[in-house]
Structures are given as C-alpha cells and as structure tokens.
Write a protein that binds this DNA or RNA. Structure first.
Length: 469
RNA sequence: CGGGGAGUGGCGCAGCUUGGUAGCGCGCCUGCUUUGGGAGCAGGAGGUCGAGGGUUCAAGUCCCUUCUCCCCGACCA
C-alpha cells in the first residue's frame, strides 16, 4: 500500500529534494573523484535529446561541427591576459606524462577559445574564408570548489561554438542570432522554460569577452540559473592568436570572433524548473520517453495489447516504452512519475473488458479512459497540450515571482526568492557589490520590455536581480 | 582557504557517554500469496565499523595521527 512520499518535499528542503530526485529517478550520481559526475542512462538520454535539438538549431544557423583536442599548451592560455586570469584558479594542469615531467605543462581545456583560435588563424586567409562558423561537442574541466551534480561539476559536457567574422557588426549579429534562434528558441519551445534574455555586467562577463549575453531561467525555488551564454570576443582573441584576413581592399585585418555554449547544466535546469514533489517533469518535446505503457497485472492478454499499442504509437511518431517489469503496479507508476514521463498508458483487466485503457498525465495527474483504437490518435494531441501547459505554467510562476522595483533595498528584498527588475541606473557598480555581499547578483541587463540590448551603453536598461546557482 | 557536521552491509542510520559475540529500516536473493497508486508472510545473502598507530585480557566504543566526504561563506556554464 501507499507509503510516505518518496522524495523530500521541495518546500521542506529544496537542495535535498534535488539530491533525492537525482537518485530516485536514476539520473546521476557522484563520481569517485570529488566534483565528477556519473550520468546514468536515463539522465544521459535526456542529455542526448538536448544535444539533438540544439545541434539541429546550430546547423540551421550554418555552423559545422568539428573537434579540437582536450589538451592545450599552457602557453596558449597565457596569450589572452583576461582569459588566463579568469580561468587559472580552476585549471587542471598535467605536469607529468609518459613517466616523465613535461617540458611544457599541458592544461585540460576549460574552454577552447585558445586552441581553436590557433587553428582559425591557420585556416583563414582571405575575407572569402569568412565567416568561419565552428561548433564542437566536448567535455571540459573547471576544477570546482563546491560541486553540485549537473549544475557545477569539475568536468562537464557541453557544446561550444566558435566563429570568426569580418566585422564587429557581423560578429555581433551572429552571436545574437545564436542566442535567439538556438538557445532562447530551444529553451522556450522544447524545454518549456521562459528565460530572461540580457547581457552580463562587466563583473559577470566571460573572461576575455567584450560582451556576454545570457539566458537566465527561474527555478522552482525562485533562484536563477544561467542556462546558456553567447559571447562577443571583439578582437581580443584575434589579436592574441593572429586571426587575420586579407580584405577586398588588399589590406590585412583582424577578425572579430564569438563563442557560445550550453552544457549538461541544462539537465539540472530542467529538473529544477519543472520538477515537483512527485519527481521530475519532462516536457513532451524533450522527453526521451513520451509515453510509458504499463500493464496493471501480469497477464498475457494485457501484454499483447501493450505491444500492439506500442507499435501504433511508434507509427504515430510517439517515443514510447513498454514497461515489462514485474512487481506491484503502484511501484511502477511511481517510478515513471519520478522519471517525469509525460503520459502513462495503463492497461488493466477491467478497462480492457470494455475496450478501454487509461491515460494518465504527469503534469496534472489527470486521468482519462479512452478506447484502445483511439489512443494513437489522441496521444499526440495530449502531448502537445502538456507541452503548452508546461510553458504556460512556467511563465505564470516566473511572472508571479518577478517584481518591478525602483530602489536597491526593494531589489534586495524581492530578489531573495524571485527576480527583481530595477533600473540599472539605480544600482551601478557599487550597488552590484552591495548585492553580491548579500548573495544576490545582477543576472543580466535588458531593455524595459525584456528584450536583448545591443550593448550595455543603451539608455534605460533594467537589471534583473536574483539569487543564483 | 575560514566556520560547522559526518565516516558502521548497496542506501539511510542506531550503537560510542558507561570497552565484553555488530544491530535496525530500506534495498537485494528464494518461495508462496499478491498486483487498479511504492504489497504481505516466511526464509536467506551481504560488514577488515575510513586508514594508521597506541592503551587493554578484550576497542565500532578510549587516546594520538591521518585521509575523505557533506553543509555554510570569497569564484564559475
């Protein structure tokens, strides 16, 4: 019979809930070395869906995938002053290999601007080679003092795009395009997470960038999570790595470069943006399993129907999984709830006698019985409904936890468990330091209407203040 | 690095004050009964008590050393 809740309730202890759900939904666990993460098959299947969606959008924007090495000469990092300063505290450096001390230490990439810059310089000769649009899927290492599975681990998986352009305007436009058409679009349309778009303050900017754009999502505990970033690097890296082209004017020019990334942190964002006390909730468009088919009892007639329905659903384009496990019905139901599968198709003897099956929605808990013949037609519609409802409820929750304020004190109050929007002019760099002292920060600067500014110099920018992960 | 906790079967914990045959819950295995929201009963497997040293007839328990992990503050996707 039913027992107490499987997870620590969110309201009681949100970090504990997060750890519980990672374990119970079989998403990930700690690796043997502090800060490392083992991503379990179900967790990884979610990441694979994220990759597929983001990868398709990146290619739509014209970038091509390539792969650069994990090991980078330490000297490369040093060529860009701000870059090395920003990353040196979290670098993993290999000093010994092959049984000997290395002549030049090798760093494990914390990001690949430097190596890629070196090769861009080699590949780019003329303006006809531009823009050069590259992306790579890789692991990177940033030694973390306070790791949290998916959110902040010493090694993580990500996608990093690197591009080179003829002009500031081109570079800027492309970075912005990626930000809108890859990240914002994916987060909203697939992950059902509405984000605050904006640019980072100088303090929060990527090491070596001239401008950093961010997508800030709100988690269920009111804290912000940076879910993707895009950087304009100006000519900083072009200068450091000599990325030049011969223009149609016959003269040499330095390129303008960009970089942009999204990581396995998104899995953490998914968990915390939609999860509830029953487990995680995966939006249908993202879900590796959109429908789990399970039999109430272990009877051949039921299993037969399950197989038939599974085939029909596959034909209808639904990602379906038949649960063949034995064991109590309640146990299996709870498991799919923990894993956030959007719809359960439950086949029981009583329903079957009437030619019916039960469909149970993960988002609302709502159940309905439908005829067996209609399942394949009805289910895709329900999935789209769930997708829309998840986005709508996320927007409602975000709006309810977002306050428009005008003073620093009000921002510090409202930012404690939500977003506070305040004129940037009311904070300034001094105010930003004050916020940081209170574990708050300026997540981004945006226009009053919430849109993405072109630069921090625009008039009347609004700061989004919050606690963050 | 600063402050606070904890190391005991796979997981979560008790036992330590007052040394004396290593326990509980969950999970796991077998069997039977079950299965419409984490089932019940019976039987069973599984532990050098983080590591090293010391005290003692005897150490999970007392003493010293050491390692690791977790939580809270200065950095980050």
């Amino acid at each position: 019979m039913a027992k107490g809740s499987v997870l620590t309730p969110q309201a009681e202890d949100f970090p504990r809930w997060y750890q519980d759900v990672l374990a119970k939904a079989e998403l990930a666990e700690n690796g043997p070395v502090r800060g490392t993460m083992v991503i379990r098959p179900y967790g990884y299947s979610i990441w694979e869906r994220i990759q597929a969606e983001i990868d398709a959008r990146i290619k739509e924007c014209g970038a091509q995938n390539a792969y650069f090495p994990l090991f980078i000469p330490e000297s490369y990092l040093r060529r860009e002053a701000e870059h090395v300063e920003g990353f040196s505290p979290e670098l993993a450096v290999v000093t010994h290999a092959g049984g000997e001390e290395l002549a030049e230490p090798v760093v494990v990439r914390p990001t690949s601007e430097t190596v890629i810059g070196e090769y861009m310089a080699k590949w780019i000769q003329s303006y006809r080679d531009l823009p050069l649009l590259l992306n790579q899927w890789a692991n990177v290492v940033r030694w973390e003092l306070r790791p949290r599975l998916f959110l902040r681990t010493s090694e993580f998986l990500w996608q990093e795009g690197h591009t080179a352009h003829v002009s500031q305007a081109d570079a800027s436009a492309y970075a912005m395009r990626i930000h809108h058409e890859v990240y914002d679009d994916f987060l909203r349309d697939v992950m059902a997470v509405p984000v605050q778009l904006g640019i980072k303050t100088t303090r929060e900017r990527f090491a070596g960038a001239t401008n950093t754009m961010t997508c800030e999502g709100m988690m269920r505990d009111g804290k912000a999570l940076q879910m993707a970033t895009s950087h304009e690097l100006g000519q900083n890296f072009a200068r450091a790595f000599d990325i030049k082209y011969l223009g149609d004017d016959g003269a040499e020019h330095l390129c303008f470069t960009t970089s942009w990334g999204a990581s396995t942190r998104l899995v953490g964002g998914l968990i915390m943006a939609h999860g509830d006390d029953q487990g995680i909730v995966v939006p249908p468009r993202l879900a590796p399993i959109q429908a789990a088919v399970l039999c109430v009892r272990d009877q051949p007639e039921l299993a037969e129907v399950a197989e038939r329905l599974s085939g029909e659903l596959k034909d209808a384009g639904v990602r379906v999984h038949v649960d063949h496990r034995s064991g109590s019905f309640g146990r299996r139901v709870t498991d799919w709830e923990l894993k956030g599968v959007p719809v359960r198709v439950e086949i029981g003897p009583r329903d079957l006698a009437e030619g019916l099956v039960t469909l149970a929605r993960r988002d609302s808990g709502e159940k309905q019985t439908v005829s067996i013949e209609s399942v394949a037609a009805v289910l895709p519609r329900i999935l789209e409904e769930i997708q829309a409802e998840l986005l709508a409820s996320s927007i409602r929750r975000r709006d309810a936890a977002t306050a428009e304020v005008s003073t620093l004190d009000e921002a510090m109050e409202a930012g404690r468990d939500g977003f506070a929007r305040i004129p940037w002019s009311a904070i300034g760099e001094d105010g930003e330091a004050t916020l940081n002292a209170k574990t708050l920060s300026v997540r981004c600067l945006q226009r009053p209407d919430g849109s993405l500014p072109e630069s921090a110099d625009e008039e009347d920018l609004v700061a989004v203040v919050a606690r963050s992960y």
